[in-house]
Amino acid sequence: MAQKARGIGTVTLHAKRSNGELESIELVDIPDFRQAVEIINSTAEEARIQLQRRANAQTLRHEGQQQSANNTSSSPKDDLNGELMKLAELKSAGVLTEEEFAAAKRKLLGL
């Protein structure tokens, strides 16, 4: 109660490390603690979305390469154009950053 009266609070974070280990961290006497919780939650959500986008982009590229390998009727030039178009679509959709797009394009072109 004393914390609430002073407008401060304790924020407890529960984190799961990449090795699977769980960890709890307490941030004690945080001014405007409700806002701190909102910031932490929104930052974590943005990070989850970015990870999911990257995972989706990797899956899409892999599937695209697999399909072109099975399609023997198209020429290598058609396959290259198709892959470049897919990369451009991913960039337009915000899945790939400018740097990721440029790196993938260089890889496709063998530069």
Rank of each mutant, 00 (worst) to 15 (best):
A103R: 14
K107N: 13
E100R: 09
I8A: 04
G7W: 06
L109E: 04
G7E: 06
Q35S: 09
R106H: 04
S92W: 00
L109H: 03
D79E: 12
A36M: 10
L96G: 03
A44W: 06
G110H: 05
S74Y: 12
D79F: 01
K16V: 15
G110K: 05
A36G: 00
S24C: 04
V11F: 02
L13P: 02
S74D: 09
V28P: 04
Q66P: 06
F101N: 03
A69E: 14
A103E: 09
V95G: 04
L111K: 14
E99P: 03
A15S: 06
Q67Y: 11
H62V: 01
G82F: 03
L111D: 04
N19I: 07
Q65W: 09
A103C: 02
A103P: 02
R106A: 15
Q67R: 15
E26R: 15
D32N: 11
A15Q: 07
A5E: 12
A5L: 15
D32F: 05
E63Y: 10
F101M: 05
Q3P: 02
N19L: 10
S92C: 00
Q65T: 11
D79V: 11
V28R: 15
Q3H: 06
P31D: 05
H62D: 10
T12E: 15
E38Q: 15
A44Q: 07
T59P: 00
A44N: 14
L96C: 07
E98P: 01
E23C: 12
L27F: 03
E21N: 06
